[in-house]
Simulated assay, not measured.
Amino acid sequence: MSTHEDFCRTRAAEARADADAAALANVRDRCLRAAAAWDVMADRAHRTDRLRADQELRKAALADH
């Protein structure tokens, strides 16, 4: 897991905790929207890391031939 993905997952967890602690519905909703956005960014970072690793493997395989 990359540092960026970790960061995003941590922020998502914090936003969910803030939502759980919120007394006002609009604050809770805002926190849940933020958590969803952080989840999207973390998923994107994970996908990017995976694609980058796959590309490096392909380049290494081509270099070996």
Rank of each mutant, 00 (worst) to 15 (best):
S2P: 01
E5Q: 11
E5Y: 04
E5K: 10
D6K: 14
F7V: 08
F7Y: 14
R11V: 01
R11E: 04
A12M: 06
E14Q: 14
E14F: 11
R16Y: 01
A17K: 09
A17I: 02
A19E: 02
D20V: 06
A21G: 13
A22S: 11
L24Y: 05
A25G: 10
A25E: 15
A25Y: 12
N26E: 12
N26S: 11
V27Y: 14
V27I: 15
R28H: 02
D29M: 15
D29S: 15
D29Y: 15
D29K: 15
D29Q: 15
D29A: 15
D29E: 15
R30M: 11
R30H: 10
C31E: 03
C31F: 00
L32G: 01
L32D: 01
R33Q: 08
A34E: 07
A36T: 13
A37R: 06
A37W: 03
A37N: 10
A37Q: 08
A37C: 05
W38I: 00
D39C: 04
D39M: 04
V40I: 03
V40E: 08
V40D: 11
M41A: 13
A42N: 06
D43R: 09
R44F: 12
A45H: 05
A45F: 03
H46Y: 10
H46W: 07
R47T: 13
R47C: 13
T48D: 15
D49I: 06
D49W: 09
D49S: 13
R50H: 08
R50M: 07
R52C: 00
A53Q: 12
Q55C: 13
Q55G: 13
R58A: 10
R58G: 02
R58T: 02
K59A: 12
K59I: 05
K59C: 09
K59V: 03
A60D: 11
A61Y: 11
A61S: 13
A63K: 03
A63Q: 04
A63T: 02
D64I: 08
D64H: 10
D64P: 03
D64G: 05
H65V: 10
